[in-house]
Design a protein around this nucleic acid. Structure first.
Lengths: 194, 194
DNA sequence: GCTCTAGGGTTACCGGTGGTAACACGCATC
DNA sequence: GATGCGTGTTACCACCGGTAACCCTAGAGC
């Protein structure tokens, strides 16, 4: 048993990655409506082994979300470090987010618009929540203020960009650069002084 | 046939209202996961007559949403008309929204977080979209600017309040007044000058 | 009085979903 | 060679949205 672990465990991990690859393909094709049976079929196997690997649909979704969020969070992190001014950093981060949803809209819809209402307030927090919480920490370190300020602003900013991005994906009423400009303006008080 | 119309049509309308009452009760109890069978059972009838009245699940949802949004939109309208300054109007509107979701969280989750992904971009636009579009018209009339500005700002503002409200409902990390203050500050450029 | 139609209502079903139990093969170990 | 153990399968369950077919009562017309 213990002797086979070094051989079997990598196989299991590779298998898991292959299953996630299949799930990736199906999510890109079907969006958040991807079904377990379709993913299993794409992977060339049947449902029960999917469930053995991920336990639950939300388990598979969480594992897949970890893949995606990793990349996007790296981009956002890079954007936040690249800018010279605070405004520039915000604009770059907004643009990174919009670029991601523009290039992979199905993946984005999966991340943001998946039901995930199964476990009421479980540890499988949605991508939006995690991103918002992360941003809240950054805001707290940046501008200080009472703790509820960072929370409200973090979640508010993420919701703002996400909602506007949603609308933009549907209507394509302007270029990405224009939307980035408008949202950055809004975040920096243009509405109050318009 | 024609003679019975004046008698039967009001009955039909009353029936419809009674069905919506039942749907209302179930949505308050089960949230967005309310099933057609449960609603039919609550109304004391069976599924097919629900379908005869509303055609579709999204039809029932749309009819029910019209009820709720009517009240909320009235409150928002009143808030936008009551304030003296622009900032006061925004604060009142944000507070009206948060008050609504605070008092009827299940109804709110139904309105905002229902799947409604069935018809891709059908006429049954979600409550969020309608509210955002309405706000965009108001912003366009208020501050002018290019058309994409009103769209981006309207959808962005709604998403901001909605997302922050979501977070607030879950964590209750601060009072409603505090959240209104933080969000209003954010919308009026406090982040840029903090 | 009888018939006959039009609704409202029901049962019973369809396809599809997430999820699982029970069984069958292969392969390393004692 | 028997014994597990992991891998995979088939076949099923309960539930969902949605629908077809029937049923049964009330009223119109003769």
């Amino acid at each position: 048993m213990t002797a086979t672990d070094p051989v079997r465990l990598p196989d299991r991990a590779a298998r898991r990655e292959a299953l996630l690859d299949a799930a990736d393909r199906i999510v890109r094709r079907d969006g958040p409506a991807a079904s377990m049976a379709a993913i299993a079929a794409e992977a060339g196997i049947t449902k029960p082994i999917l469930y053995r690997h991920f336990g639950d649909k939300s388990g598979l979704y969480a594992a897949l979300a970890d893949r995606y969020t990793g990349r996007l969070l790296e981009d956002l992190q890079a954007a936040l470090e690249a800018g010279r001014t605070r405004r520039d950093r915000v604009a770059r981060a907004v643009d990174a987010y919009l670029a991601a949803i523009e290039h992979e809209p199905q993946v984005y819809r999966f991340l943001v618009h998946s039901d995930e209402a199964a476990p009421a307030q479980s540890q499988v927090r949605s991508f939006t929540r995690r991103l918002s919480a992360l941003l809240a920490v950054g805001i707290a370190a940046e501008v200080g203020g009472p703790p509820q300020r960072a929370g409200a602003w973090g979640h508010g900013m993420v919701g703002m960009v996400q909602s506007a991005g949603d609308w933009w994906l549907d209507t394509r009423g302007c270029t990405r650069e224009e939307l980035v400009g408008e949202l950055t303006d809004l975040l920096f008080g243009a509405y109050g002084t318009a």
